[in-house]
Design a protein around this nucleic acid. Structure first.
Length: 267
DNA sequence: ATGGTAGCATAGCTA
């Protein structure tokens, strides 16, 4: 049976609610994982999603910053949240969805951006990012008889050379420094995760999911990065059928700086 | 080397 999951850093779910509604009506993923909702839980716009048939919602939000939400047409169970680095930030949410004869645990992540200076001794935000990655090693790809795992979200790291517009010019820029890219790849592989986007799209092809707000013309300069990811337990490599990166969404009215990524499976 | 934009605690933080 068909099953799809989307991930999107929305940069304020309330401000961009019309865009999310338009997206859900057009693409109808079974599950949508949002990051940077910037919305306290008591102000989350549940009703708008329920009206579109997304009746199962798990949220972990805070005022002003961060925040993740998982919105689903299928029932969600066993929801839990991991706190990282004793910061109290809302950066993770996991839940279990049933599709076909499988139960799938879906982890929704928002990894710290890390600030501008890639030196942990002088930049506490970068130290926090590295500490977060170390704790992320505990999140492994559980799989078994009728049980699989998916990990999506804004990981704020572009690990491969063709995940950035210029590998050489990005090597000292936070999100593409060797300590970040090597740590992320190491924890991914040791955790049993497959990079499902790269399973379908060869490593010699550029993929971007984010373009800075600060560019004069994001489309023309095209200095993008692949910061948003879809990982899965190894068994899902045989089930993923399609992957869409909605570049057009970066050109929508009052856009997020990230675009949705949709993974479609045949389970 | 600098400054560029966006959102929310509308001031200074996060990204």
């Amino acid at each position: 049976m068909a099953f799809s999951v989307a991930t999107w850093n929305i940069n304020s779910v309330r401000l961009r609610l019309p865009l999310v509604e338009q997206f859900l009506q057009t693409y109808q993923p079974d599950v949508l994982c949002l990051q940077e909702t910037k919305c306290p839980d008591d102000l989350f716009p549940h009703d708008a999603f329920k009206a579109l048939g997304y009746e199962h919602i798990a949220i972990s939000g805070q005022k002003g910053y961060h925040g993740v939400a998982t919105i689903s047409r299928r029932r969600l169970s066993d929801v839990n949240v991991i706190g990282f680095c004793d910061m109290g930030d809302c950066r993770h949410l996991s839940s279990v969805v049933e599709a076909g004869n499988k139960k799938i645990r879906i982890h929704n992540f928002y990894v710290p951006a890390g600030g501008d200076e890639p030196k942990p001794d002088i930049n506490p935000k970068f130290a926090h990012k590295l500490g977060f990655l170390e704790e992320m090693r505990n999140v492994v790809a559980d799989q078994g008889d009728g049980f699989s795992s998916i990990l999506v979200g804004d990981l704020n790291i572009a690990p491969l050379e063709n995940d950035v517009w210029s590998h050489k010019q990005m090597l000292k820029i936070v999100s593409h420094t060797p300590i970040e890219t090597e740590t992320l790849e190491d924890l991914r592989v040791k955790g049993g995760w497959s990079d499902l986007m790269r399973h379908l799209i060869p490593a010699d092809q550029k993929i971007y999911t984010w373009w800075s707000y600060r560019a004069k013309d994001w489309d023309a300069s095209d200095r993008g990065r692949r910061l948003d990811h879809v990982w899965g337990s190894q068994d899902l490599e045989n089930h993923i059928k399609d992957l869409q990166v909605l570049r057009e969404a970066r050109g929508w009215e009052r856009p997020s700086d990230h675009v949705p990524v949709i993974a479609s499976f045949d389970l």
